[in-house]
Nucleic acid binder design. Structure first.
Length: 308
RNA sequence: GGAGGGGUGCCGGAGCGGUUAAUCGGAGCAGACUGUAAAUCUGCCGCCCGGAAGGGCUACGUAGGUUCGAAUCCUACCCCCUCCA
């Protein structure tokens, strides 16, 4: 029987060791890595995003790293399209695609095949709506949405301006209500999750942040600003960049900036567990203290032989 | 030795006689999320029972006291900080 081509997906919270695992798996299984991290797609943002190094990239081909400038437009829809494209290319080469990253939105959009609304962001409309929201409160947007698209209004978080703006943008630009749906892509996915207890994770995160500073995070952020990229860009709003930016602007001491970066990263990790639940039967969870490399390899090899 | 200031929940820090388990911030925990997602938004957060409503217990350095009632007033003691010697 014709089986769907295999794609291995490695997920888990930040700093858990996904990149490291993906490298060894890719080398062992003739694979190539496809990034599923929402920040590593940006150019010139290497240290703060813990992007795989040039050396690592020379060992194993990586895709979807450095695909846009920090002020470039990026989105879920674009990511999804690029990811499917990359998967197909890797498969065409007869190699195993490894989708690796901690951005839940992106991972599930690819794995579950979300039908993303065909409405590109409209900066001026967003600006206008955001202004309304801050002037009259989010309820103003909510009431407008309720008239235009009652169904969407029933499900959005009416207190979240960001969500309201997008919902309005979708129905205003599309001219009609939009319904969520999924079209499962033609691949067989094997999801592997890396995890550990929170205290250990926090320790890993903290030392990773320290390491970023040692490797020159401050200089990296300064260089971005020098190139003319503003801290207000979505790309630079990420953890690390925002705090170091505040330090460079004289709003925080370096010690404070580093501490806040650690804390915010803890929070990211916590939210990642909301996307990747340890109770999710689709994910094969591995404890990082129990030789995850070997276990992951066994899991995948077994799965590959079953599927084919 | 003298003069001031202060000790509040995991941390910082309000409160200065009742409406206070105690504003607020941080940390921590839980959740939402469909073209910004490392973003944005929400809830919980002394302990015990409860699904909740609610109930019980223990709490504002320690020990006493005043008061119907104290984190808030008084006394003593302990500890911390600043200044003068």
């Amino acid at each position: 029987m014709a089986t769907a081509p295999p794609v291995v997906v490695i997920v888990g919270p930040t700093a858990i060791g996904k990149s490291h695992l993906s490298l060894s798996l890719a080398q062992a299984l003739n694979g190539e890595v496809i990034n599923a991290d929402s920040r590593q797609v940006y150019r010139y943002m290497d240290i703060g995003t813990a992007k795989p190094t040039p050396e690592e990239r020379s060992l194993v081909p990586h895709h979807l790293l450095d695909v846009v400038d920090p002020d470039g437009e990026f989105s879920l829809a674009l990511y999804q399209r690029l990811a499917y494209q990359a998967i197909d290319e890797v498969l065409a080469r007869g190699r195993l695609p490894l989708l690796v990253g901690g951005s839940g939105l992106y991972v599930w959009a690819v794995v579950e095949g979300w039908q993303v609304p065909p409405v590109p962001p409209d900066p001026s409309l967003r600006r206008e709506l955001e202004e309304t929201a801050s002037r009259e409160g989010p309820d103003a947007l909510y009431h407008r949405l309720r008239e235009l698209d009652p169904e969407a209004a029933a499900t959005v978080d009416r207190r979240n301006p960001r969500r309201l703006v997008r919902a309005l943008e979708v129905c205003l630009r599309q001219g009609q209500p939009w319904v969520r749906c999924k079209t499962p892509p033609p691949y067989a996915f094997r999801l592997i999750g890396l995890t550990t207890l929170r205290p250990q994770l926090h320790r890993r995160i903290d030392s990773r942040v320290e390491g970023m500073v040692e490797k020159g995070l401050v200089a990296e952020v300064a260089a971005l600003l020098q190139r003319g990229y503003s801290l207000s860009l979505p790309a630079l709003s990420g953890v690390g960049y925002r705090q170091i930016g505040a330090y460079l602007a004289g709003e925080l001491s370096l010690v404070e900036a580093v501490q806040q970066t650690k804390y915010h990263t803890h929070r990211i990790a916590r939210r990642q567990y909301a996307w990747f639940r340890t109770s999710d039967p689709r994910i094969g969870w591995l404890d990082i203290n129990e030789d995850p490399g070997a276990q992951a390899r066994h899991l995948v090899e077994e799965w590959l032989s079953e599927v084919h």
